[in-house]
Design a protein around this nucleic acid. Sequence first.
DNA 1: GCAAAACCTTGATCTGGATCAAGGCGGCTG
DNA 2: CAGCCGCCTTGATCCAGATCAAGGTTTTGC
Lengths: 209, 209
Amino acid sequence: MLKAGQLTELARASSRHEVLAGTELPDDGTYSNVLAGVIKLTRNLSDGRQQIVGFHFAPDFLGRPFEPKRPIKAEALTKVALCSFPRTIIDRMADDTPELGHRLLNHALSELDEARDWMTALGRKTASEKLASFLLMIARNIDPANRSASSISFDLPLSRSDIADFLGLTIETVSRELSRLRSDGVIRIANKRHISLESTGQIEGRCGD
Amino acid sequence: MLKAGQLTELARASSRHEVLAGTELPDDGTYSNVLAGVIKLTRNLSDGRQQIVGFHFAPDFLGRPFEPKRPIKAEALTKVALCSFPRTIIDRMADDTPELGHRLLNHALSELDEARDWMTALGRKTASEKLASFLLMIARNIDPANRSASSISFDLPLSRSDIADFLGLTIETVSRELSRLRSDGVIRIANKRHISLESTGQIEGRCGD
DNA sequence: GCAAAACCTTGATCTGGATCAAGGCGGCTG
DNA sequence: CAGCCGCCTTGATCCAGATCAAGGTTTTGC
């Protein structure tokens, strides 16, 4: 898709780096590829209420070509490996290479689809449906190989408080619903953070959609 | 931004048409400009619960270049005037004219920003903050000239039931919160659908962000 | 290895918004 | 113009999830 000269140029301008969990990723006008790890995007109301409005899992784009600054903060949830490029280079290449422009557009559109799915969850699903939908989403994104597996096991990259901020609930409700899923035999929980989905079918049935 | 030949080609391939309020707009792979009116985008859960996930006000793009079908339905809320183009032409022109590609991308990104703002409202705002935010959003979009006016008056293009489906509330709560805003002197309501915002500052103060 | 801090769970109680219920108000239709 | 239907409002009651409260468990720092 890219020409040889472009690849060389990209390679020269790129910089790889790693950040620890908890690091805030400044919006420095840079465009990045997420090589490993998970990033959360949060939006705050003035009185401190918080909503997580999206995630970036590896491998994924990160950055806002052509866009004005927004009151959205990006923060690493796990150790994250990034490969960054100056925005100017990407913008120029997108002009020369329609295929790259398509990919940026497609990526934005699928983020939009996801945001709308979560609007539906936030507005119309019950707490227990929200938790089921959330676990399935994480399972499928944390390792793309899981997409169609019938039994999945993974480490949650989020604290209970982050989960609450994503699902529009409180920590206590998240904890209670996880306990309920466990006692219903739908999931297993080890060390608070390690989750096993016994049967994806059963979880899917609890998502409400 | 477009070359003369492209404009001719677009004009030849375009088709203008109007639809009545309530018409569903089929996802026929077409790309349209909304010349007048308001369109709602809805997503349904299998048991009938519904969420409105976005609106299109004139003048605005409508269409999903390069994207697979999604369980999202578009429906005219008012009489709508559209100018449609076959997707193939737009896609081809976007390849030739980077400026057009940028506009498509920018448009998708601002829809994404809006969706995320509403995620925050759905997850973290109270019913009364949701109503205030909603009225302000409608006021600003129904007539772009309103953007900075301090006192605005307009006809709601949505029924109470649509408002409820957008804000994740019930009809009754929407009605009660509107009554409260009226009795607090923040808005005036005539004929159920005609709203006057006495002072945008006061409404802004009730949006929670 | 001990203490403090951070995070999580579970129970008791409360409450914002849902649900149930009963009209009110236009606007069509016959 | 009477009666019906769709839409909206308002009141009474209920309940899912919030808030308040009290530990338990894991991690961190010294």
